[in-house]
Simulated scan of single mutants.
Amino acid sequence: MTKPISYKRHRFPPEIIAHAVWLYFRFPLSLRLVEEMLLERSILVSYETVRRWAQKFGPTYARRLRRKRASRRDVWHLDEVVISIAGQKHWLWRAVDQDGYVLDEIVQSRRDTKAAKRLLRRLLKKQGCPPRRMITDKLGSYAAARRQIMPAVDHRSHKGLNNRAENSHLPLRRREQAMQGFRSPGGLQRFASVFSATRNLFVPPHSRRSALATHLHRLNAMAEWKSAAGVTA
Results as ranks from 00 to 15, higher is better:
T136G: 07
R218A: 13
T214P: 06
V194F: 05
D97M: 02
A228F: 00
T198K: 03
H77W: 11
L212C: 06
S227C: 04
S157V: 06
H169F: 05
R11H: 06
Q127P: 03
R63A: 09
L65C: 06
S6W: 11
T60N: 06
S184N: 10
L31R: 07
R199Q: 13
R118Q: 10
V194T: 10
S71A: 08
P59C: 15
L29N: 07
A143H: 13
A221P: 03
Q88M: 10
P131K: 12
R66A: 07
A165D: 10
K126M: 00
R208F: 04
V194Q: 06
K226H: 14
Y101H: 04
S210F: 02
A152Q: 15
A192G: 02
T49Y: 01
G186I: 09
R32A: 08
Y47P: 02
M179T: 07
A165T: 10
S157C: 12
A228Q: 01
A62D: 01
R174N: 09
G128K: 12
G160A: 14
S227N: 08
L39K: 04
T2D: 10
L103C: 00
E15V: 15
R146L: 09
D112A: 03
W76S: 06
A178K: 10
P14H: 04
S207T: 12
L31F: 07
R32Q: 09
L31C: 03
H19R: 10
W76P: 11
V82D: 10
S84P: 08
R146A: 15
A178Y: 05
S210W: 04
G87D: 15
L139M: 13
L92K: 00
R73T: 11
A70M: 00
A20H: 03
S227F: 09
H90L: 10
H77A: 05
H90N: 12
L38G: 02
T136C: 06
P59V: 15
P171C: 07
A229P: 03
P13L: 05
S196W: 04
S109M: 12
G160W: 15
K159Q: 11
R111S: 02
G187D: 07
P13M: 05
H206R: 12
L139N: 07
L119T: 00
L44E: 13
A165S: 14
Y24A: 02
E15F: 02
Q88C: 11
W53P: 02
I85Y: 05
S6D: 15
I149D: 01
F27K: 09
P14E: 10
A228L: 01
K3M: 08
R64E: 02
